[in-house]
Structures are given as C-alpha cells and as structure tokens.
Design a protein around this nucleic acid. Structure first.
Lengths: 160, 160
DNA sequence: TCTTATTGACCATCTTTGACTATTATATAG
DNA sequence: CTATATAATAGTCAAAGATGGTCAATAAGA
C-alpha cells in the first residue's frame, strides 16, 4: 500500500536518476496518478524541499511546467555554514530529518550515522517535560544507544 | 484462558518468527481481535519494549503503520539492558562519555559514530537554559552537524 | 488488596481533496 | 498593432479523512 505521495515521490526520483533536473506538467502527473493536482504540490513541499536538496521552479499559463532541480553540492564548509544558518536557534523535527536525508544522499554520513542523528533530534528524544539537564540527556543517550544496537541488521534496509 | 494481551503478543510473535521486523496496522489488528486500538499500544508497551528486546516505530496519518523490530545483536542485548539500567532517567556527561569510549573500544561503534554520540550528549549540546524544545533541538543538531563536517574534512585531508 | 488488562475520550500527525486565486499564452476585437 | 477576453496552467490554504498515541478511569485477575 505505498501511499500515493510515496509513489509520486518515487516516480519523480526515477525520472531524475540520470538528469539533475526534470520538467513536469502538474496536471498530467496528477491525472497519471488519478489525484488532485494540488497533491503534486504536497509531494513537492514535503519531499523535494530545499532542505531535501531540491529547488522547484515553475511557470503557469499555457505551456506551463514544474521543474525540479537537484542542488549540486558545493564546498562543504559552505554547506555547513548554510545549514547552521538555516537552523538558527530553533528547528523542528521535519527540517532536521530532511537535512539528514540530504546529508545521507550526498554520502556525507553513513546510514548508521544518519540514524544516530535522527535519534538525537527526534521528538521522542527531546519532547520531554524536562527540568534537569541530566534527565534530558538520559533520554537522548538512551535513544542513541538503542540506535547503535539496533543497526546491526538494519544496514541493508532502505531508510525511511 | 489466554488473556487478550497474551493472544495479541503471541500473534505478533508468530508474525515475527521469520523476519526480524513486522509492520502492522494498529486499527486492523485491533479489529481482528475485537478490541480497542489502544489495547495494541498496551501490548507493545508491556511485551515489546526495549527491555524485551524490541523497538517500536510508527507513523500516523494515511498509510500509517506500526513497525516492531527485534533487536538481535549477538549477545549484546544484555549489554544494552545493563547500560539502559545504569543510565536510568538521569546521567551525567562523564558517565556517558565513559560508556561511549567503551562502545568504541569494543568496536560497537566507529570513531565517527562515537563522536556523534558525544556531540549529542555533551554539556555544550544540552546545558542551555532552554524552555522550548525546538531551541534545545537546534543546539543538539548544530553540534551533530559540526561533528559530521569536522570528521568529513579530516577524512578528506587524509585521502588527499 | 494489588497488579494487570481494557476501554474510551481526546490528541497529534500525515495525506488527500477542492474551492478559490494567480499567472501566462493565445485568440479576438478595435 | 494594441487591448482585452479567454483558455490553460500552476499555487494556496483550509477542511476532511486516515491513521496512530496518551492517559486516566474502570474492570478483571491473582
């Protein structure tokens, strides 16, 4: 039961396997998947955001299109600065996870490392009613440990 | 007579006889057993906790699921239990770092992974006067990123 | 009684849709 | 040739739908 959104995501990524960009007709794609056109926008917003490493360009009107462009990696120091800037002093889980996927896709971290990172920033790890830092740290660390022990047989599986 | 919870436990364990993980629909399972959906959560919490050697992941919304993953790491499960026990719900930085060093020495994590873990639990990452969890998360994540990039740059230097 | 099990009301998150809006190209009128 | 209308696209946003989570009250067992 691949979700519609997941199917559309895969479809687009398949199209982009060779090229760093692809042009689509929003309505055509929607019709192909038998869904509302705005569904395409949803997929783009949730899976092809800048944080995921993509840029969306589009044009309305006759001959309109949606272009998805993969952002090529630049110097990493630069990327680090950009990411730190992006994060600022407040960031939500979705953004973190998007960035982590991005790092993974660019082979800047291994799957295990990405998993560790997710563990460290997940809601589960941090959304506690903490008062003492040690309590919070315990939660974070527990997550990290679980992650480490878990990854032995997870290495080949696709990450979520 | 078997309790409902026991039946559900057995049912899930049967599903997991072959695979190390299984995906469920919470509502489907509940319907199958004619019980409240939250009953499933109860079973998971009491019989498939980390202490029991399982990890639960889930997703809400359309296409949501509950995934049960068995932690089967060659005798290391015991160590995990011990460590989790030692941590409890409060732990200081030194203890964490000591444990991480230990994991590293036993080759349960790579140097990079250990560094990530230290980054996630360090004073620097967590000892902020935070109130909002997003603010805290940003601090943790910033540390993780710096760690990833620092290691990567070192590797590059080594390579060249 | 004390622990474990069960349920239900209320909450959180993710997806899908549709009505309404915005932009652009092309046809048409003047 | 220009101005305007029309058609062809795409975007936005809020509501509805589809799941799963939490917690406290209650019930059932030991």
């Amino acid at each position: 039961m691949a979700q519609l959104s997941d199917s559309i995501e895969q479809f687009i990524k398949e199209l982009m396997r060779e090229d760093a960009h692809v042009d689509l007709r929003r309505n055509e794609l929607a019709q192909h998947f038998g869904c509302a056109p705005s569904q395409i926008n949803y997929v783009l917003a949730t899976r092809f955001s800048v944080d995921h490493g993509y840029i969306i360009e589009s044009r309305r009107g006759g001959g309109g299109y949606v272009r998805i462009v993969r952002i090529e990696s630049h110097g990493e120091t630069n990327l680090l600065d950009m990411l730190l800037n992006r994060i600022g002093n407040s960031v939500d889980e979705d953004t973190c996870f998007a960035i982590i996927s991005n790092l993974l896709e660019h082979n800047l971290v291994t799957a295990r490392e990405a998993a560790l990172m997710r563990a460290a920033v997940s809601r589960n790890a941090l959304a506690l009613p903490v008062s003492a830092k040690d309590v919070l740290r315990a939660a974070v660390f527990r997550n990290l440990l679980i992650q480490v022990f878990r990854n032995h047989e997870e290495e080949e599986r696709d990450d979520v």
